[in-house]
Design a protein around this nucleic acid. Structure first.
Lengths: 486, 486
DNA sequence: GGGTATTTGTCCGTATGTATG
DNA sequence: TCATACATACGGACAAATACC
């Protein structure tokens, strides 16, 4: 493939074959085409340039005669070793001059040269913290099965290359509705399910559906990504405080918000599970008016020795809950596949607004995921990773118990929890850990107005390995000077 | 017994029988109701829903007419074999929205109420039109190579399961920048490229970046999907007329728009290629203020015997052009992979707003696409399909020449063109073709204020096979009564 | 790994415009 | 004015090489 632009202008006085010759010869001299590279075939190039084959042929003949390229019959033209060519410094000036406008090598235009990755603001998250809350263990990912399914799907489903259903593949939505009904008590038909490339994509759609004047109530502390999405769309946000049972309903009602974004099954970042009574009160709040609850069930797959509480969506009798879930945490962050369950009324709105757009997820990967679910791969994988996490979590908690003055909460499920150390302030905890080379995030980073618990950190264990845990915890204990004598 | 929830809301603007019809039809399509299952009896259902029997009867009649269910007299209504129904998925989105059962929910405005086909006794609407402008020939898709690459990528790149770069895989952006430079004269670094799941997704991001008060100028006639995206986001739209060279610059300037959405290389639907002079004037308009041009190059891969004009982005010296492209038309509609090239100033904004979100395209498929490009698969495939299209187009034009009074325009590139038949009005052309079983779309469907050419149709040939062309054209000529004596 | 359809360099006939005689 | 030659550009046909299944 050429990395430079070829433009022929028949209006010029220079014959086109000569323009072409000059451009390619210049590219070879300039190093844009290296020894051994294949030129486009005569037909490909004449099609691309919109000229006849003879034009290209004449140019290639010239190049061959000059020794720039070699013809390998019935195979193609290849750039010959320029080093062995006679020196070209003495080229006539007019040819060299003619070459520059025709063949512009556009590797790096000067205007853009200064704008690299470092020139723009990048996420401030510490590079690779072992306790990152977004890390996920993918070591057990069933590569073989996934690739095998993908291959089968590609081979056997040529129709998947054509346009798909906007909401997502019927087979996947069918599988999802079964999964959600069985494991999360979600009550829905496949019709109500919408698939999208990540929760952010789905949230974008919801924001559009709700219109510009909707006021959103979000958890404080809560998910920064949600706030960012709402802010970038210019929406009004109310930061609603939490208590030990989750979002404060009175505060929510007083806030004037009409859409509440919740993580009831394992609140992020506090980790509390919302009890049924609070859920009922929130549902009642929603049922009282044109109000909606977005239930983000981002990490319900992993529970440790506690009974799961069914989703709020399943308790809802007023059709005010939008259930949202994702495979990014249960399978792998790179799997951009999320889903939401829309109440009928919203579904109709969705159809009006997005019912003609193509889905944002590859039909191939949707179908692979459908089979991954239907054929039990997913269930087996979740159990396996769940055991990994359970073991890791147990090791972690046991090690943390050894150090005095540490408290753990929110560890009933998911892959993060809160760690409190009353002996130091939060910023001390963070900075001392950083000095020891361990990136940590304080709870206050997730708070807007409220700071419910002092000296608290948010620790993820999705990216840890069991072996490194004792050393890590000991390092932390030492950094915080709370280690027991060894 | 239904396994899904039926909720009728008399407060909605949609007639209750239609709500009922939509719910059941959707359930059948989605697979919640399977072949052979018995629907509740009319009496049972009307009692259960608290509606009159006439409501249920009308809904059941609709379902029967559409072929979803079959009435077995004195026994009940049974779900018919959905597999045997005409393929709904392949329908062009705009047609599907008007007539397909799922989307009829969305067509509930009084103005459109009469437009649904429930009054039509014919059991099914025309299958996908052979002349659909969104159809793409995927018969030559290299399944084996794609699957092989995917497998290799999955096996050899475990890191792809982790979070990726928000803009997209560096390898892909590198390959794209090379491709765009070589074939479209786009001047950019890989850093400026952003990858997303379809042009709509990228446009959504641009709409967010430009803020709520930006006024958009779109081509009239033009792309309905673009208007819909802008409308659903509540943006101000100005419909700017075209002349033979593309968008009217004076009208654009007078409209007060600050962002222009253009398809310069093969205007949709007119098919005209914007000449360099018009491009310069538009670029000057943009350079004069805080203005932007979105250059949608959806179609540029296929050209027939004409020299390509490099992209406007490549001519732009003021960094006001956002270049947008997609693989949905060149590879397959289901490949949800589009890209845009952001000018440095916009890139910084993009980073601030979206720089932390995960990309919307699977890292696996991104990497597969990168190798697909780098290793020459893409180039070979494009040439192959291009030859297919060229042959098909030639057959088509030759057949059309046989019939007197037909005029073709905009056929220099892409996979659609305009057909004019001065002997009849546009609606006559459409309705007579429909009566002959051939779905066609008139140019006026794409017009908002302007109707530049009378008696003109927009024909796509991506979904045709060469063999069927003569018969199809003959059928059209007969339907229009312009056939020469045989 | 083997079979087949496509691609590819090459050769060749043709058309058009221009210069020459 | 006409004939000839040449430069440039276009496209069909052939057999080997290659890509795809």
């Amino acid at each position: 493939m050429f990395t430079f632009t070829l433009t022929l202008d028949p209006a010029l006085r220079i014959p086109m074959y000569e323009q072409l010759y000059t451009a390619i010869a210049g590219a070879i001299r300039g190093g844009a085409l290296l020894h051994g590279e294949k030129l486009p075939s005569k037909r490909a190039l004449c099609d691309q340039l919109g000229v006849s084959r003879a034009t290209v042929e004449t140019a290639y003949e010239l190049l061959t005669a000059e020794g720039y390229v070699e013809s390998r019959p019935r195979s193609g033209f290849y750039v010959s070793d320029y080093q062995l060519l006679p020196a070209w410094e003495g080229q006539p000036a007019e040819i060299a001059a003619g070459s520059s406008p025709v063949c512009s090598v556009t590797q790096n235009s000067p205007a853009n040269a200064g704008l690299t990755d470092r020139g723009v603001p990048s996420p401030q998250q510490p590079a690779e913290s072992p306790f990152s809350t977004s890390a996920v263990d993918v070591s057990a990912f069933p590569y073989t099965s996934w690739a095998k399914l993908y291959k089968e799907v590609v081979y056997n489903s040529p129709e998947l290359l054509q346009r798909g259903e906007p909401r997502g593949e019927p087979a996947l939505r069918q599988a999802l509705s079964r999964l959600l009904s069985a494991y999360r008590g979600v009550r829905c038909t496949p019709e109500q399910i919408v698939v999208g490339a990540g929760i952010e994509t789905l949230l974008e759609q919801l924001i559009t559906l709700f219109g510009p004047d909707t006021v959103y109530g979000v958890e404080d502390p809560g998910y920064p990504a949600i706030r960012r999405s709402l802010e970038s769309r210019g929406r009004s946000i109310r930061f609603v405080p939490l208590d030990g049972a989750g979002m404060d309903v009175e505060a929510l009602a007083a806030s004037g918000a009409s859409v509440a974004y919740l993580t009831p099954s394992h609140q992020f970042p506090l980790g509390v599970t919302m009890p049924a009574t609070r859920r009922s009160r929130l549902l009642r709040w929603a049922a009282e008016g044109e109000r909606w609850i977005i239930e983000d069930d981002y990490d319900s797959e992993f529970r440790y020795g506690v009974r799961p509480i069914p989703s709020m969506q399943g308790m809802d009798r007023a059709d005010r809950v939008i259930y949202v879930g994702t495979f990014s945490r249960s399978l792998a962050p790179a799997i951009r596949l999320a889903y939401m369950v829309l109440p009928p009324a919203l579904l109709a709105r969705w159809q009006r607004t997005f019912g003609r757009q193509q889905p944002t997820v590859s039909r191939y990967e949707q179908t692979v995921m459908a089979r991954f679910l239907e054929e039990g791969y997913y269930g087996r994988y979740i159990r396996r990773v769940g055991n990994l996490y359970a073991h890791r979590r147990q090791t972690l908690l046991r090690e943390l118990e050894k150090a005095p003055g540490l408290g753990v909460s929110g560890a009933d499920g998911g892959i993060h929890f809160l760690l409190t150390c009353s002996k130091r302030t939060e910023s001390e905890l963070v900075s001392r850990a950083a000095a020891a080379g361990i990136g940590l995030r304080g709870l206050s980073e997730f708070c807007r107005d409220a700071l419910p618990m002092p000296s608290t950190l948010v620790l993820g264990f999705g990216g840890l390995s069991t072996e490194q845990i004792p050393a890590l915890i000991q390092a932390l204990a030492q950094a915080w000077e709370i280690a027991p004598e060894t």
